[in-house]
């Protein structure tokens, strides 16, 4: 039930009780750029990419902050005022709220600054990174950042290709510490095996001592990693994502029938991976590891010949066997059930 409406960039959209700006915007088809926020997880508001400008309520002064800005005329930093921006992923909607997402200069500047900061120590890895082509850093750089790199120092170097388990490999240099993987492990899998250690530039994701990232939703951490920091070993260096095409499918691993995308190479029809597909009624955003790794079964191990009791048989023999088993069913058709399965 709509609780009221908010206005984003001049467009009025309804919101439901308890919704944040980014959730209401997403339902209305407005994309607010983000890294750390995910609709299925709690919002830490740590990446600051979704900052928006919110107009003060009528009759109230705007919340302004003092900041230092470079003044070209005086050739010095001077104190100027700037409206305080709010993270759209944590800010709840209130009726009549006026939000500026793409129409605010301050928001543009803030997003460019966030983007610049995230890339300060990022390695030049796109050519060897599996995420290239579906990376949020790439998309947001082109959309929100239009000046050259200003940092001239040697970037910070961190751990690379750390196996978190047999299935997941971690790259500290690419990681932007959005903590999605931490929250997936803690909130979805209920196994807080990942955490952030160190602070600032030096912070990185780490596995609890003596443990491995081996809970049944470990592949979800790699799947929802917005950058190339967590990569699944089964997909690592196998192909490039722009060669792949996605087909809509269901996971056949169990009766849940999780909605999924099957990514395959149209040139060879070889499947490369599953990706969970959002379905509120079935699997929300998630899939378990066993299901995620069952993608080869869409091609190999398909039942192509008849079997009787597990043994190879010709079609005629199979029909004969079926006829034998169904004998007598015509007397009690209401007590007969046949299960067909793909």
């Amino acid at each position: 039930m709509a609780e009221g409406t908010i206005t984003i960039d001049g467009r009025e959209i309804p919101f439901e009780k308890g919704e944040t700006i980014i959730t209401a915007a997403r339902r209305a088809g407005i994309e607010i750029p983000h890294y750390c926020w995910h609709p299925g997880l709690k919002a830490p508001a740590s990446c600051r990419m979704c900052l928006v400008e919110i107009e003060p309520p009528p009759g109230r002064p705007a919340m302004m902050l003092d900041i230092l800005a470079w003044d070209e005329d005086q050739h010095d930093y001077t104190v100027v005022k700037k409206p305080k921006l709010m993270p759209a992923c944590q800010m709840g909607c209130a009726d009549g709220m006026v939000v500026h997402n793409t129409t605010s200069k301050e928001v543009e500047k803030a997003r460019a600054a966030v983007q610049e900061m995230l890339l300060l120590n990022h390695p030049v890895d796109c050519p060897i990174c599996d995420q290239a082509g579906e990376c949020s850093l790439q998309d947001n750089l082109v959309a929100h950042y239009d000046y050259d790199k200003r940092m001239v120092d040697e970037p910070l170097h961190k751990v690379k290709a750390v196996p978190f388990s047999d299935d997941i490999v971690y790259d500290g240099e690419r990681c932007i510490r959005c903590t999605r993987c931490v929250r997936i492990s803690r909130d979805l899998a209920g196994d807080p095996v990942l955490s952030v250690r160190e602070r600032g530039n030096h912070s990185e994701i780490t596995v609890s001592p003596g443990r491995q990232l081996d809970h049944p939703y470990a592949l979800m951490t790699a799947n929802y990693c917005p950058v190339g920091a967590l990569t699944p070993t089964h997909f690592r260096f196998k192909t490039r994502v722009w060669f792949l095409r996605s087909g809509l499918t269901l996971c056949q691993g169990c009766a849940t029938g999780c909605n999924a995308y099957l990514d395959y190479d149209p040139r060879t029809n070889q499947p490369y991976r599953f990706r969970p597909r959002e379905n509120e009624q079935v699997n929300q955003f998630w899939m378990c590891d066993e299901g995620m790794l069952s993608y080869p079964e869409s091609q190999s191990g398909r039942l192509l010949t008849a079997l009787v009791g597990g043994d190879d048989a010709t079609m005629a023999e199979a029909l004969q066997a079926a006829k034998k088993q169904l004998k007598g069913c015509e007397d009690e058709p209401e007590r007969t059930a046949i299960v067909l399965s793909a």
Binding site: L119, P123, V124, D125, C126, Q138, Y145, D146, D148, W242
Partner: peptide, 26 residues
């Protein structure tokens, strides 16, 4: 930078140049 290809030294040495080049090519 959304229209013009970045200079090659930026493509090879900075992540910003690499990404822009990648996006403009792909």
């Amino acid at each position: 930078p959304r229209v013009v290809f970045p200079p090659k030294d930026q493509v090879h040495n900075t992540i910003e140049g690499t990404i822009r080049h990648f996006k403009l090519v792909m």
